[in-house]
Design a protein around this nucleic acid. Structure first.
Lengths: 241, 241
DNA sequence: CGGCATCCATTTTGATACTG
DNA sequence: CAGTATCAAAATGGATGCCG
């Protein structure tokens, strides 16, 4: 079962040898949101086929990218989680994700699944952590038929599926195309808010903080990226700090 | 030939739908070094199979990631080159490449091909462009059995295969493992230079500029030994030939 | 030759059935 | 729930064929 390799001593080629096979990076994405059980992963990745998922997990575990762990009683279920190099890998995927928002993500196709966690993961990773000191807030996003929330706690940002259990400081309601159109440069937030395709609910003060944190401008963010001749957008009318 | 898709409206999944298939990203890597002909790509990617390469190229062209262009006479050959989204894609691969240097690149296997352009592409992309203003220099790298050079010209850095045609300001001689060990954190540059596994040839001034530009620490490394202007430096054969 | 298209032997995969 | 086992369909890789 000699693994297929590109046979090149090149960092990118070796990386693809390691994690370039089908489904592998989506497993990483899923685990980036937190530990998950085998069946959670099966649910989250329709079409994967159970034995292929098992193979991938075993491989990633052998390479110390993920770790298999049995939760302490009473939960006692086994979960997979990112580990060591895996956490760094998740971060390395961010620019690729940003690229995808702008170049691979057109309108949503009817057959495509969507979960609010996906954009929230990226948004959470893109938030400038130095902006979050002293901020403690929960933001809920209702996008199309999916709900997720971001939890900002004093320097840490985490993305979660579902409603915020203890209520949210700001609730964002939108349809996917409008929502992903913002970072993609297709949606002008101010316009979208004006015609109701994008709604922010919450106290004015909370909304102001929220708007300050959101990484609306992807252009000058990840590692570098001298922007293309992109059309200049205006952020939603939020007072400067 | 309905393309296989993950069926998820997620930026990463869509990106992988677009460029996640086998060989695609290595084609991007090859074109990141500059336009190449079909046969150049075949040579650079042993094992690809001619029809698969043709498919990939056609697909990438259709998605406006690369462009097919016929060079003006007298060359009159057709080349493929990165285009629009493709250039941004190449940049988005950098973090993945950096990850690979640290986590996917062990010792070189006997059967693996190696070309000096590969690390040079990454190094060139990682150089802080603001450090290069007013700098005009050529650096040649002789790594194992492969030679390549970096050309720094007032804010622009480009990587090329082969020797520098007009001589180099600094020539770096090393074996691959020592060389890639530097960013990976396995090689201490000072030690490697002391025991001759890493040799820098050139005028002291040129070497000083060179060392300033090199992105030696990819991120804060645990055992960080900054490459100060080396204490022991071999000024050997002149830079020009 | 450069630039593909065609034809097969192998691998990978996807979907389902089955087990502790 | 957490996987294995099995098998058909798809993707890959090699070798050739073709055409300017």
């Amino acid at each position: 079962v000699a693994k297929r390799s590109y046979g090149q001593y090149c960092a990118l080629a070796r990386t693809l040898d390691l994690i370039g096979e089908r489904w592998t990076l989506l497993v990483i994405r899923e685990l980036a949101a937190g530990p998950k059980r085998y069946s959670d992963l099966l649910d989250a990745l329709p079409g994967v086929g159970t034995s292929l998922l098992a193979d991938r997990l075993k491989h990633l575990e052998a390479k110390e990218i993920i770790r298999r762990r049995t939760l302490p009683p009473p939960a006692a279920s086994t979960v997979y989680e990112l580990f060591g190099a895996g956490a760094e890998l998740a971060r390395a995927l961010l620019p690729l994700t940003v690229w995808g928002v702008r170049h691979a993500l057109g309108p949503r196709r009817r057959s495509e699944a969507f979960r609010a966690e996906w954009p929230l993961l990226a948004i959470g990773a893109l938030i400038d952590k130095s902006d979050t000191v002293g901020v403690s807030a929960v933001y809920e996003f209702r996008i199309d038929d999916s709900v997720g929330h971001l939890r900002v706690e004093n320097g840490a940002v985490s993305a979660h599926a579902g409603e915020a259990p203890d209520g949210a400081d700001v609730v964002v309601v939108s349809d996917v195309e409008t929502f992903v159109g913002i970072p993609a440069g297709r949606t002008d937030p101010a316009t979208a808010m004006a015609d109701g395709r994008l709604v922010l609910e919450g106290e004015p003060d909370a909304i102001e903080v929220f708007l300050r944190l959101m990484p609306i401008d992807l252009e000058a963010r990840p590692t570098d990226v001298p922007a293309q001749p992109a059309t200049r957008r205006r952020a939603a009318r939020g007072p400067a700090r």
